[in-house]
Amino acid sequence: MIPLTHILILSALLFSIGVLGVMLRRNVIVIFMSIELMLNAVNLSFIGFARSLDSMTGVVFIFFIIVVAAAEAVVGLSIILAIYRTRKSLNIDDFNLLKW
């Protein structure tokens, strides 16, 4: 039996790496991958809690999260495609029009 604490700390670590990825990387697609990483870290903690609480809710939730993640990936990637067509770049620093 894996202790809950271990799972949660692994989850927190993966999540933090995902956060760092969002803040440090400049390639939009890699930033997007980091977001997926964060989603997975959350999934892991869901499963951990579900197991230690003898509940199925967490497992069903992951099912939904994965569907949402798939939808999000599809829409997000198509947005990236659309942006790439106009700006010919994947560098996040080039997408800074939304400001004062």
Binding site: V19, V22, M23, L24, I92, D93, F95, N96, L97, L98, K99, W100
Partner: peptide
């Protein structure tokens, strides 16, 4: 203060963090 709102997503993410 408006310097904070530079349009770069990562700055916003940093403030959010």
């Amino acid at each position: 203060i408006r310097g904070l709102q530079d349009g770069v997503m990562q700055t916003y993410a940093l403030i959010f963090a």
